[in-house]
Design a binder for these strands. Structure first.
Length: 104
DNA sequence: TCATTGGCTATCA
DNA sequence: CTGATAGCCAATG
């Protein structure tokens, strides 16, 4: 259906710069729902677009990579391939987490 | 419109 | 990690 929420989530997710990651919570806030962290996951889960929407750049607020439709390991490999330091499935949010800039 | 289900979460125990 | 609870959106009936 691609409603406003989904569209926003995918849009923001596709705007994540390289070597940077965002959290489901942050994405939810940027999408307009500060507590729709789960909904964000649902949207990404049903939108397998490893090219247009790199959902693998979205991690959990704990700093862990979280889940992935294609496999948790796959997500980690992709992140590492972009230059993100992934230690045992954990990412340094202090260095890679960013606040989604709502610019073009 | 409401009820139920599902889901890459968040937080607490 | 598991279990439970919470709060959210989309799909289905």
């Amino acid at each position: 259906m691609m409603t406003g929420f989904q569209d926003k989530v995918l849009e923001l997710a596709s705007r994540i710069p390289r070597e940077k990651v965002t959290t489901y919570k942050g994405l939810a806030e940027a999408a307009g729902a500060p507590k729709a962290c789960r909904s964000v996951g649902s949207v990404l889960a049903e939108n397998p677009r490893p090219v247009e929407v790199p959902c693998h750049r979205v991690v959990r607020s704990d700093g862990r990579v979280g889940g992935y439709s294609q496999g948790r390991e796959r997500k980690i490999q992709l992140l590492r391939g972009e230059g993100v330091e992934v230690r045992n499935g954990v990412i340094d949010l202090e260095k890679y987490s960013i606040s989604l800039s709502r610019e073009v």
